[in-house]
Amino acid sequence: MERRGSDANAHRSAPLASATPIGPLRRVLAAVRWYVRALMGDDAYDIYLVRHAREHPGQEPLSLKEFWRRRIDERDRNPTMRCC
């Protein structure tokens, strides 16, 4: 369990749950943005950084480019099925 407060965690919870008062339109837009980014996987590197900091404190994490290279190459070995 990591403590709250690290900025990289902010993306994990939907912005609708955010405590700061913002306009309804902004909130909907932020929710849509959060959903699309999470669905497409844009947030994968942020998640990795948090995880890495907890599990290997003090070690240098992979660069963004290297992380994505490995992430996509992982699918070379683990193909996912698409249905009809």
């Binding site: 403590r3 407060g5 907890r54």
Partner: peptide, 9 residues
Amino acid sequence: GLTPTRIGA
């Protein structure tokens, strides 16, 4: 002060 779904423990 905890996140309910930790990120990859």
